Structures are given as C-alpha cells and as structure tokens.
Amino acid sequence: MSNLFEMRVPQLGESTRSVKVLKLLKSEGDRVSADESLLEVETNKAVMEIPAPISGVVNQILVDAGATIDVGEIIVRIDGQNPVHVLGDNFGQKRKGEQRVPRVSNDPAWRQENLPPLQVSLIKNMVHSKRDIVQVSIESQVNWSYIDDLKKAYRKSSADKISSLGLFTWACGEAMRSFDKFRARLIDDARIEINESAHIGIAKSCGDDVLLTPVITLSGGPNHFEVQSKLKALLSDANASSAYHSVSISDMSAFDTIRGTPIVVSPSVATLFIGTPYWGFDRDGSKVRISNLILSFDHRVINGVYAANFLSRIKRNIASLRRRECGAA
C-alpha cells in the first residue's frame, strides 16, 4: 500500500528563511530511495543537497531550478512508504523483516541535542559518497624545509607574508592546470565535465563542530602572492559559504596530526591532507623535517598513476618555487 508524502523545505539553519533551487536531481516518475538526493539548493551559508525522506516514486515536483522558495514550502510529492531511520552503521536502512527504532536512552547521565543543520547535511553527503564513490588514497612526503625556507625568504624581502596553506593551495592550483581530471565532476557512469578553472575547497572549522568548505577559484595561473591574498580574504570572511569544488584541502599541519585519511565528498573528485611536520630522513639519509601528503581520490574519474603524478607535481611546484625564490638546490 502506498501513500502520498509531501516533502517540504527543511529548516537548514537558524537564520535561513528561504533557499534557492540550483538543480533538480530527479524527474517526475523517477524512483527514489530514502536518503537519495532530490535537489541541490543554496542557502546564505552553503550549497547542499536535500535527500528524500522516504523511498518511492516522484509523483510531482512543485519547484523549478532557479526558483527561490521559503522554508516549509512543499517542493516534492512522493508516492511511497515511510522507512524507519537509524543513525549508525546501517544509516537509513533496516534488515528485512526487522523493525528498527532509534536508540534513545532514558538514563539521566545521557543528554540529547540536535546536530547543527549544516552538519546533518554533511553527514548525509558523506553517506551518499561512501555508497557511490570508489575512494582510493595514496601517500607521499614533502620536505618541510622548503616551506620554511620560502616563508623566511618572504619575511626578509617582502612586506607580504605567505602561509604554508597558501603555498600548497598555489601548488595544487598549478598542478590542476595540467591535470584536468582534477577539475572534473562525474555526470553519469560514462561522462564527466571539466571546468576551465580550478575550484579548491578549503576546510574551515566554524565552531560548534560545524565544518564549512569555502572555495577559492583560480584562473589563468595566478602567482603565489595572489593566491595568498585570495585565501586570506576567503578565510577571514565570516559569510564565506561552501560551494562546488573539485578538490578540497584539509590542512592539519598546525594541529599535531601527522597522518589521516581524508574522505572525498561528492561531487568533489579528490581531497588533499597536509600533516604536521615531523623529523625524518630524506632520500640521501640526512635528517629533515617532513610532512605527509595524503591524497584521496575518486577512482571512477582518476586512476592511480594519474593521481601519483598529480601529487608529485604539487611537490615539484613547491621545490621549483624554492629554487627560484631562494636560490637553493
């Protein structure tokens, strides 16, 4: 037995009163699974996908791409049955014949609180990405003395300061100019589309366990000072919001985190992790400070050799800049 379910625009933030519809991901008559994305919207803080609350068939779509709609407004009618949702290893699923119910404790030692709406949206995107993306990770090391040398050189010779994140963002953007699949997104199982610019998301903590990924767009090969200037403005902008990016950077170099496996969240195709520098040994056996660079990528779009060459290009860009600016071998 089926029932017609009216899906409304959810409350996506305390200050959010309306959203703009960027893209419809389903058409009338399409089958949809619970937690499968139905449409992509933009709030004043982020771009996010709104998932279907039930499984069934899309009966009616009441909005158009480009429209601005209010929170609480009906957007889709779905002909289906309402599943039981559980947040856990089998998020949004239940075993056949089993009635799953949320685990709620009556123990006064436990307290309940709602997750921030942006975090809820990110969780859903992560779940979808884990299901869809074929994620592979590779690791390399960069000689951190190259970063230290560049920062020292600029402190002495220029009023402009540059950060390690600025240098890696520039190096990544330069590499993306040559490796166009890192500027791509998957359309379907047989097609990708490639953007002419590099869209790089910078992971940024906003407190209350909320993570945004504001985006820096690089076109035409800007130099490292121009990238640093854009990056500084982006990270200091309290209104900067998440948006589309094909590559994201998670810079943990200042957080005493040597190694971590970054995840790729659709529609991105790669995430670069920068670890905290530590003492190690160079290829010639000399003791140096090194940092782990870990690149996770979507194997549906990018193969291992292509990813390894991309990561190597980022390192070479840093080394070449050091030779040019510091006169070092």
Results as ranks from 00 to 15, higher is better:
93 Q>R: 07
127 V>T: 07
223 N>Q: 07
15 S>A: 12
277 P>G: 07
188 D>Y: 04
46 A>T: 11
56 G>F: 04
155 R>D: 10
73 E>G: 03
241 S>G: 15
265 V>D: 01
39 L>A: 05
325 E>T: 07
31 R>C: 06
278 Y>T: 06
246 S>M: 09
205 S>V: 01
136 V>E: 15
39 L>R: 07
316 R>V: 14
36 E>F: 13
103 R>S: 13
17 R>V: 06
229 S>T: 09
215 V>L: 06
219 S>H: 13
320 S>Q: 15
105 S>I: 00
292 N>H: 13
92 G>E: 02
297 F>K: 00
96 K>W: 09
106 N>V: 10
185 R>E: 10
124 K>C: 05
19 V>D: 04
327 G>E: 08
236 S>D: 15
87 L>S: 09
51 P>S: 07
251 D>E: 02
77 R>W: 05
3 N>P: 04
241 S>W: 04
115 L>V: 12
230 K>M: 14
276 T>Y: 07
301 V>S: 11
253 S>A: 09
307 A>L: 01
197 S>M: 05
24 L>S: 09
274 I>P: 02
42 E>T: 13
309 N>M: 12
261 T>Y: 01
184 A>K: 03
281 F>G: 09
144 W>L: 01
310 F>K: 02
19 V>E: 04
313 R>S: 15
188 D>Q: 06
239 N>K: 15
251 D>G: 01
181 K>R: 15
269 V>E: 10
146 Y>K: 05
153 A>H: 08
104 V>H: 11
71 V>M: 05
56 G>K: 00
183 R>V: 01
277 P>S: 06
47 V>N: 05
225 F>W: 11
311 L>N: 06
29 G>C: 09
120 V>Y: 01
8 R>L: 08
47 V>H: 01
111 R>V: 14
43 T>F: 06
108 P>D: 12
215 V>N: 02
156 K>Y: 02
35 D>F: 15
3 N>S: 12
26 K>A: 14
217 T>F: 04
167 L>S: 00
220 G>P: 03
224 H>S: 11
117 P>A: 12
213 T>M: 10
147 I>Q: 00
303 N>L: 00
169 T>R: 01
102 P>I: 05
152 K>T: 09
261 T>C: 08
221 G>D: 15
45 K>L: 02
166 G>V: 00
288 V>W: 07
143 N>F: 04
145 S>C: 03
133 I>F: 09
102 P>V: 08
91 F>S: 11
113 E>S: 14
319 A>W: 03
238 A>Q: 14
315 K>T: 10
42 E>M: 13
99 Q>I: 14
23 K>Q: 15
131 R>T: 06
290 I>D: 01
223 N>H: 05
245 H>K: 00
160 D>E: 14
284 D>I: 03
301 V>K: 05
307 A>F: 04
105 S>L: 12
304 G>D: 05
7 M>L: 12
70 D>A: 12
119 Q>A: 13
137 S>C: 11
14 E>S: 11
254 A>R: 14
270 A>M: 02
